[in-house]
Simulated assay, not measured.
Amino acid sequence: MKKLNSLFTSTHIFTAALVTALYSSATFADWSANISAVSDYTFNGLSQTQNDPALQGGVDKAFDNGTYVGTWASNVDFGGDTNLEWDAYIGRYQMLTEAVSIDYGIAYYSYHGGDDSSDGNYPEIYTKFGYASDYGNTELNLWYTWDYFGTGSRHAVAMIAHTFELAPNHNLRASFDVSNSLDSDTWVWRDENTSFYHYRLAYQTSYKGLDFEIAAENTNLDIDTADERIVFGVSKTFSF
């Protein structure tokens, strides 16, 4: 699993009782692990690594009833001592019809490296709708938190995306998302803006068990960690 946008962007610890309930809900489960290297770790178009590369990886367990639980980590750089993001999530994926799917759950983002890094920890709930057709796969994805980066601010993200199959094993994914601060007294973006938008166009393919993506993206924020950029990533998934 992943945090936000695509193959190479993160999803973003739950109580032992909740995880135990998940494990007892199904007899059989599948494990998987993933590792990826990216030229820049971007989150809604904002670099989390000061425009530098990142090494990322995660472990997931999926159950027969569509429930999954997992964890994911990446190096980060916000200009201070924080150098690690470590997330956990629990959710459920199910088909509503032959063409429409829903994926919903809760994630917890945690930060490490400095004495005050954990001040930025926060939870987030998400719902993702998918529609498969002869013209590709369409997504409507929604995220919401009531404690954005530990500030007590409510924050919401809405994304629409579509993946086109150019040819077998060659896909093009276009996405557009808007981030909205719902408490301007505690969180605003540059120049007192309460929202910003981000758009991304990515080419995706695989070769000899490796997944590759090259993406062009930009935002309407006028800062060097959120301007136009090309991001490259390579990923490997293991099943066991």
Score class of each variant (00 low, 15 high):
residue 168 P to R: 07
residue 238 F to D: 01
residue 48 Q to D: 07
residue 161 A to L: 03
residue 52 D to M: 14
residue 61 K to V: 15
residue 58 G to C: 02
residue 181 S to L: 11
residue 19 V to D: 04
residue 31 W to R: 00
residue 219 T to A: 00
residue 43 F to P: 00
residue 12 H to Q: 09
residue 13 I to V: 11
residue 127 T to W: 03
residue 121 N to P: 07
residue 125 I to C: 06
residue 128 K to M: 02
residue 94 Q to Y: 06
residue 208 K to H: 08
residue 235 S to Y: 06
residue 131 Y to N: 03
residue 225 T to F: 07
residue 81 D to I: 13
residue 55 L to R: 08
residue 122 Y to Q: 09
residue 138 T to E: 13
residue 170 H to K: 12
residue 234 V to Y: 00
residue 15 T to E: 00
residue 40 D to L: 00
residue 51 N to W: 15
residue 69 V to C: 02
residue 5 N to V: 07
residue 153 S to H: 12
residue 120 G to V: 01
residue 86 W to I: 12
residue 53 P to K: 11
residue 108 Y to W: 13
residue 100 V to M: 09
residue 177 D to L: 10
residue 196 F to H: 05
residue 16 A to P: 08
residue 183 D to W: 02
residue 35 I to H: 08
residue 78 F to N: 10
residue 27 T to E: 13
residue 143 W to H: 10
residue 26 A to T: 11
residue 47 S to K: 10
residue 6 S to P: 05
residue 29 A to P: 05
residue 200 R to T: 09
residue 200 R to E: 06
residue 187 W to T: 13
residue 181 S to A: 14
residue 180 N to F: 06
residue 64 D to R: 12
residue 39 S to R: 09
residue 155 H to W: 09
residue 20 T to E: 12
residue 215 A to T: 00
residue 169 N to A: 12
residue 50 Q to D: 09
residue 67 T to L: 09
residue 22 L to F: 07
residue 206 S to Q: 15
residue 206 S to L: 11
residue 149 F to E: 01
residue 63 F to V: 05
residue 235 S to W: 10
residue 172 L to F: 14
residue 73 A to L: 13
residue 80 G to I: 04
residue 55 L to W: 15
residue 56 Q to P: 10
residue 72 W to G: 02
residue 25 S to E: 00
residue 64 D to K: 13
residue 239 S to Y: 09
residue 68 Y to S: 07
residue 185 D to T: 03
residue 145 T to D: 02
residue 158 A to H: 03
residue 93 Y to V: 12
residue 150 G to W: 09
residue 134 D to P: 04
residue 192 E to I: 00
residue 183 D to R: 04
residue 40 D to M: 04
residue 105 G to Q: 01
residue 173 R to Q: 15
residue 170 H to N: 15
residue 183 D to F: 03
residue 158 A to M: 04
residue 126 Y to A: 04
residue 44 N to R: 01
residue 234 V to H: 01
residue 129 F to H: 00
residue 142 L to V: 04
residue 102 I to W: 03
residue 97 T to L: 12
residue 217 E to G: 01
residue 51 N to D: 15
residue 28 F to R: 10
residue 238 F to W: 08
residue 110 S to T: 13
residue 70 G to R: 06
residue 191 D to C: 00
residue 122 Y to I: 11
residue 222 D to H: 11
residue 172 L to D: 15
residue 2 K to C: 00
residue 224 D to R: 14
residue 41 Y to M: 15
residue 197 Y to F: 05
residue 32 S to W: 07
residue 69 V to D: 03
residue 179 S to Q: 04
residue 62 A to R: 01
residue 22 L to S: 04
residue 90 I to P: 03
residue 105 G to T: 11
residue 76 V to T: 00
residue 15 T to G: 01
residue 41 Y to D: 08
residue 96 L to K: 12
residue 201 L to V: 02
residue 209 G to T: 06
residue 2 K to Y: 02
residue 38 V to H: 05
residue 110 S to P: 10
residue 63 F to E: 14
residue 13 I to Y: 11
